[in-house]
């Protein structure tokens, strides 16, 4: 059993005032242990819905999803989630924020102190333990949320455009930081983004979803050296992969338009 995440033809239909919205339609995906998989697709194609489905908080209404061989039906300790906004608790300082999951799991936080300090050090936040979230920049807050997700040492990280709200420069820094964490901790990561460049830089494998309803369009194996060499994002090979995926997405949209099934993303209020 080395498929840590196994998604089998999941679907999700939202009941909205304007009638049912098909967000995902029979999407399948497999992620192996230690793998870094990215999921890309046009806005509103159901990427966020897919990830929330995997958290067990927001169940699919068709198909099956397995995490570590068990069907997903509730949140699990083996899964850490990181979303677009850091979602820190403003009344807790940084240390209390990152130990929040441990507290909920009734762990003795003091026993984990050293590890938490190490994790904070890994994202260059040593010395900020007693600061409050409002005193930190967006990038720092997002690093706190990464440490929070790592605090209980989950095997799997689910990330939904975690750096989407950051400026371009900070975003690139965070990507590099994330690769470092991935290499060191050997987590299995499923990473949603709409930036193809980011997906190709980070992942071993990129799943492309069609426009809504999100179905499987293509899977790309990213054949770039690990660890990613400096300046890889300036190289011909990298550009070619990015272009190929972009062409694929454009084609999916064109195809839907030809068939007259393309829906404008008027519903797309959720990001």
């Amino acid at each position: 059993m080395d498929d840590v995440i196994d998604v089998q033809k999941v679907s999700k239909v939202y009941a909205s005032e304007r009638g049912p919205v098909h967000a995902i339609d029979r999407f399948s995906m497999k992620v192996r242990e230690g793998d870094f998989v990215a999921i890309v697709g046009p806005s509103g194609c159901g990427k966020t819905t897919l990830l929330w489905g995997l958290t067990g908080l927001h169940p699919f209404n068709g198909g099956r999803a397995y995490i570590l061989g068990e069907e997903v039906n509730k949140p699990r300790k083996e899964v850490g989630i990181i979303f677009q906004q850091s979602n820190l608790l403003p009344w807790r300082n940084i240390y209390q924020n990152v130990s929040f999951p441990l507290e909920i799991m009734k762990e003795n936080v003091a026993e984990h102190e050293e590890r938490i300090k190490e994790l904070l050090d890994g994202v260059e936040l040593t010395g900020f333990e007693n600061h409050f979230p409002r005193e930190l920049s967006g990038g720092m807050q997002q690093r706190v949320s990464i440490v929070r997700a790592l605090s209980y040492d989950p095997k799997i990280l689910l990330m939904d455009e975690p750096f989407g709200a950051l400026d371009a420069y900070t975003r690139d820094e965070m990507d590099t930081l994330l690769l470092g964490i991935w290499k060191k901790t050997q987590k299995t990561i499923a990473f949603v983004t709409h930036r193809i460049e980011e997906a190709v830089y980070l992942a071993n494998k990129v799943y492309v979803m069609t426009p809504r309803p999100g179905t499987n369009s293509a899977v790309f194996d990213i054949d770039l050296p690990r660890p990613r060499p400096e300046g890889i994002t300036m190289e011909q090979k990298y550009f070619e992969i990015v272009a190929e995926i972009k062409r694929r997405i454009v084609k999916d949209v064109e195809k839907q338009k030809e068939e007259g099934v393309y829906q404008s993303q008027a519903y797309s209020t959720v990001t």
Binding site: L57, P75, Q85, L89, I104
Partner: peptide, 15 residues
């Protein structure tokens, strides 16, 4: 969003 966060760690209603 904050309730979802707590729930994702398995928080009980009381927590």
């Amino acid at each position: 969003a904050k309730i979802a966060l707590a729930k994702s760690y398995g928080a009980t209603t009381f927590q």
